[in-house]
C-alpha cells in the first residue's frame, strides 16, 4: 500500500471530502464539495459560475472514474516518460540581482518588498 495515501487518507475527514467507499456508486460532486475544492484552490466562483462548475466537474470526475477498471497491480507509477534520473548542478552562484526589472510586473511593491494585505499569525 502506498504510504502517502495512508497519511493522506487519514486527513480526509479534516477537509470534509468524503472518500468513495463503493465503486458502484455514481460519482458526482455536490455544490458544497465544489465550494470546498474552490477554497482549497483559492478560486472565487461567481454565483452563475458555481452551478455550471458543479455540473461540469461531476461530468469530468465521472469520466475519469473509468480508470478504476484498469488492473494496475504491481505497476510502478511513472516518474519520467524516459525513466531518466535527476541531474545535479554545481554549487555556483550564477544569478545576479535583477530586482528592479523583475518587480516591474508586481502590482504593489515598497522598499523592494512585495506587498500583501496584512498577514495575521
Amino acid at each position: 500500500m502506498h504510504k502517502a495515501a495512508c497519511i493522506i487518507a487519514a486527513r480526509a475527514s479534516q477537509v470534509g471530502l468524503r472518500a468513495r467507499n463503493s465503486r458502484n456508486s455514481p460519482v458526482s460532486l455536490n455544490k458544497e464539495q465544489v465550494q470546498r475544492i474552490a477554497t482549497l484552490a483559492r478560486l472565487k466562483l461567481a454565483d452563475e459560475e458555481a452551478a455550471e462548475t458543479v455540473q461540469k466537474l461531476s461530468r469530468i470526475v465521472a469520466f475519469v472514474d473509468q480508470l478504476s477498471q484498469a488492473n494496475t497491480d504491481n505497476v510502478t507509477p511513472m516518474a519520467h516518460p524516459l525513466n531518466a534520473s535527476q541531474r545535479l548542478r554545481a554549487d555556483v552562484v550564477t544569478e545576479l540581482d535583477d530586482r528592479d526589472h523583475v518587480q516591474e510586473n508586481a502590482a504593489a511593491v515598497q522598499d523592494g518588498l512585495y506587498l500583501v494585505p496584512k498577514v495575521i499569525e
Binding site: I8, A12, R20, I37, L43, E49, T53, A70
Partner: peptide, 27 residues
C-alpha cells in the same frame, strides 16, 4: 478554473490513490 479544480480534487485527501496514483500507473 475547471482544470485547476479537477486537479485539486484528484490530488486531495482520500482521492490521491484512486485517481492520481492510478493514472500514473495506467500511464
Amino acid at each position: 478554473k475547471r482544470r485547476i479544480m479537477t486537479g485539486t480534487y484528484v490530488l486531495s485527501a482520500g482521492y490521491y490513490d484512486a485517481y492520481y496514483l492510478k493514472a500514473q500507473q495506467v500511464r
